[in-house]
Design a binder for these strands. Structure first.
Lengths: 274, 274
DNA sequence: CGCTATCTTGAGTAGCGTCAAGTCATGTGG
DNA sequence: CCACATGACTTGACGCTACTCAAGATAGCG
């Protein structure tokens, strides 16, 4: 299982990003700090993600109310946890920068990564039903998050219909996503799974305004394998095969998609078509 | 506002591939029929599932309002579909008797069963996010369902907090369940998957007031296999092995759990404990 | 009573996991 | 600045689990 202790604090941003605070840890978790309302509002309005995080269709007052709920942000080093399994549920979280993985754990130590969360994604919604987090969220890149107190959000959603459907839709879409993963895990072969993974990742980068055809994989091979129900070796072999087939270029974390259509044709090539 | 649930009325083979299920058709779909309010109320109050379907914590008026939303019920024969993938989303459904499976389909014909729905379970929540059903729901036993118009439910949930958290919790718990299946599909071996499946099924029968240790499997081996990411042969072999080990008795659909603790120990026996 | 769907069991095989060795990139300490 | 340590990745050899194909048993239903 993953050692929970210090991620090597040198902020392992694989890309050449300048690391702002190469803080050496003991990683004490400070609490999320509220900032004053004006600063809050500024932070959301100026945040390039506000179109993603803030619900559409609110009038000015409601919008301010929503933004007023958002607690400003906290930094997480690679390997740090936003919450742990079993922890009480109080807030929903937005990833502002960086990336997390959600991990579900079995008592015998086995772990399954159930999702990766990039900038703009929400975290913690699976905890609503039992008021406790069933999984844990681990930063896989240096990350900053914002937090929204769930109870307040629910109160607001009773007054503002857009907030209500916003939350419902988030939950429901996550359901559909998970069902897609079930399809992948249950019915697809290794190479297909990797292809689907790359295509999805590309799509997500695209909606974030980044290049869909050239990006840095935010996670290590082992995490990809875990997510896809494979070993890291199999992931590596599949990537090599896709490379040899001329569909992608890959060098460690650096990935380029050369033939998007070809990648999509990998899905369903030579399968047990029920 | 009710009778507009038009289903594409014939059970055509979606994209040309053969129908696997023993459907003796023609399965004409009649529409959901409303009954008068009094009858509606009677139907929920007298329904032995009302503790399951009707949210707790409502005052008398709200409770009547909720029940007033419930459209009375429609019968489905084995193989009939409650909704199809792509169909517009208008209602949530409760299984009153019988059972359904949710099936996610891939363009190439592969299918993944993402869940089984027994009496008291809700169906259709994965359609909220996109106002269309991403999966289809097929009756695996003769079944009766009730329907709740989603928009009306949302309106009510803005006035009645218990309804709001009721829906949120349903969605969130379903997320957790799906993540558990991802864990199963990604990290467990065949025999473990079958054991988990039986234990879960037993638990669900128990909460329904039925015997957890002796029941009839509502689905065929192929469906179990599909759900668990296995072939029907592998499911059969696993059941035989569990039988030989003295943990269960099994005769076709008839199943008896002889050693519940032993079944639980199958999970995690000799695994790649990361 | 016979048809068909369902289930069981066996034999052979393939895909992926396991184990192992080796390369490469990055960071560290001398 | 260099030697070294470490983590990430790749590639190969081998083995096992679960899939495929096949045959036969059983049960349900008209």
């Amino acid at each position: 299982m993953l050692t929970q202790t210090h991620a090597p604090a040198h902020a392992a941003t694989p890309r050449g990003h300048t690391v702002l605070h190469p803080v050496r840890l003991p990683l004490t978790r400070t609490h999320l700090r509220a900032v004053n309302p004006v600063a809050r509002k500024d932070n959301c309005e100026n945040c390039r993600l506000h179109a993603v995080c803030v619900p559409d269709g609110l009038d000015a007052g409601e919008r301010d109310e929503f933004i007023g709920l958002v607690f400003q942000h906290k930094r997480f080093a690679v390997g740090e946890r936003l919450y742990r399994a079993g922890e009480a549920f109080t807030h929903l979280y937005f990833v502002k920068t960086g990336a997390f993985k959600s991990v579900m754990m079995l008592h015998d130590g086995r772990e399954q990564i159930t999702g990766f969360h990039l900038a703009g994604d929400m975290l913690g919604i699976d905890a609503i039903g039992d008021s406790a987090h069933p999984s844990e969220a681990v930063a896989i890149e240096e990350a900053w998050v914002c937090a929204v107190p769930y109870q307040s959000l629910m109160q607001l959603s009773r007054r503002a219909e857009p907030v209500q459907s916003y939350v419902q839709n988030l939950l429901s879409r996550e359901l559909v996503r998970d069902q897609g993963v079930m399809l992948l895990l249950g019915r697809m072969q290794a190479e297909e799974r990797v292809a689907v993974f790359l295509i999805n990742l590309a799509q997500r980068f695209k909606t974030r305004g980044q290049s869909p055809n050239e990006f840095i994989l935010p996670m290590v091979r082992e995490d990809i394998g875990n997510y896809l129900g494979l070993t890291l070796e199999t992931v590596s072999r599949c990537l090599s095969r896709l490379k040899k087939a001329g569909l992608i270029e890959v060098n460690n974390r650096q990935l380029r998609i050369l033939d998007h259509a070809g990648l999509e044709q990998v899905i369903g090539a030579g399968q047990n078509h029920d």
